[in-house]
């Protein structure tokens, strides 16, 4: 367990900024407690300072996980967000997309979001931007990357893809063993 290097921080924050923009500040400057990011086994954890201090007592091999896992660095040095980060992403999301009830299940099986399932979308969402997917009851379902901007969505035919799937809460079942 160690803090992120500068290079890693840059890659990680770039990825995160795709979803929550400048709200990253709110993740770090919290009025209730100080939180930090720690790298462990190539995974990035979001953890409060107090827990982090307690975790230092545990050896590297013995420590399985701490705080909330945001994602992991791949072998090529890129960063991948995990579904476990959804709670925080949803709270600070910049662009939101709500899917209709009939679109919830297809998305949670790992499919892309289609125009027909689009219930609502934040105005001015650009293309290829991270967006959080919500059900119509405002429950976060996952996140993805927009395939079209808001204005393009309007002209899209119903079967066209609006958001490319990245992660969804169905993974808690589908990828139980790999999720960690």
């Amino acid at each position: 367990m160690r803090p992120l290097t500068e290079e890693e921080t840059k890659v990680f924050f770039q990825k995160l900024a795709q979803y929550i923009g400048r709200n990253i500040v709110h993740l770090i400057n919290r009025p209730d407690d100080t939180y930090c990011f720690r790298l462990h086994n190539n995974r990035v954890y979001y953890v409060s300072e107090s827990i982090m201090k307690k975790a230092t007592c545990i050896g590297r091999d013995q420590l399985l996980s701490l705080g909330v896992c945001f994602g992991k660095f791949t072998k090529t040095g890129k960063f991948r967000l995990h579904i476990t980060a959804l709670d925080y992403l949803a709270q600070y999301a910049k662009y939101k997309i709500w899917v209709k009830p009939n679109g919830e299940m297809p998305f949670m099986y790992g499919n892309h979001v289609l125009k027909a399932h689009l219930g609502r979308i934040t105005e001015d969402t650009p293309e290829h931007q991270g967006a959080i997917i919500y059900s119509m009851n405002d429950i976060p379902l996952g996140f993805g990357v927009t395939a079209r901007s808001t204005s393009d969505c309007r002209k899209l035919d119903p079967t066209g893809i609006v958001v490319f799937h990245q992660a969804d809460i169905g993974e808690y079942l589908r990828g139980e063993e790999t999720l960690l």
Binding site: I121, T122, E123, D124, T150
Partner: peptide
């Protein structure tokens, strides 16, 4: 009606 937009700004 055509598309439901959330006017965030």
């Amino acid at each position: 009606d055509i598309i439901n937009i959330d006017l965030n700004d």
